[in-house]
Design a protein around this nucleic acid. Sequence first.
DNA 1: GAATATGGTTTCCCAATGGGAACTAATGGG
DNA 2: CCCATTAGTTCCCATTGGGAAACCATATTC
Lengths: 128, 128
Amino acid sequence: MGTNGSDDIARLTAAPTSECGVERTLRVLDGKWSTLVIRELLSGPRRFGELRSALGDPSPKTLTERLRMLENQQILTRTVHAEVPPRVVYELTEQGRSLSGILHAMLVWGQEHPLVEESPAAPVRSRP
Amino acid sequence: MGTNGSDDIARLTAAPTSECGVERTLRVLDGKWSTLVIRELLSGPRRFGELRSALGDPSPKTLTERLRMLENQQILTRTVHAEVPPRVVYELTEQGRSLSGILHAMLVWGQEHPLVEESPAAPVRSRP
DNA sequence: GAATATGGTTTCCCAATGGGAACTAATGGG
DNA sequence: CCCATTAGTTCCCATTGGGAAACCATATTC
């Protein structure tokens, strides 16, 4: 990444061309952390530290990056309270809350489909 | 990646611990290609080359990797027809088809939420 | 007025991921 | 005999993402 992270985030959130709805959604739910942040915020506003521990301590860099991206896409808002110590609260926008249907479908599917035992993982070469 | 890709794929699909349904689903819909492969296969079986061109020509390495992962998770099946030229057909399993609800929710959301114009991306430092 | 405590962000560095191009295998056709 | 076709695989490199630790601003404390 370059010296200015904002440009990179803007590039990531820019749509290159017309694309189907699934792809557009994937631009928002990009990667594990984005989706989990939204899952967490669906139950209410959270502070940075609360998000971090609720998600299993991702590196602050990664979490900040994802939060900026989602803020850029107007999925959530970032509110700084000028207190000491500082308090930064993240909250879903209306657009962000509208993702709840997708998240709910994912939650149900995951609950109903226990993960398969990993196969013996035989060498891929020369299979019948 | 090591000399044997199967081990890596097995590692990627292995669940580390108990987790919520959303996380379990994310282990399957991991990244852009997995989801798009499933979207494509929801309208019927496809050959390797058909998938590749329908998805905008991802590198064969990446596509193979994702297909192996989804096969490992029993989301799709891989059938080799011993012909010349070879013909390999990928098809969703019952589990794979059961993801259609999630995909459909993503499609609808994406259609209803045009992407935001990217913000001026002002430096992040010292915002109010 | 310097020290401290606090929460969020950034920098540095390294590992993992993903893509491109070239190569392989098997066989039918010119 | 050489080429075309399909489905990969291998090698190498650019990009991305994570962890650790330093950084920043400021009210309170000494």
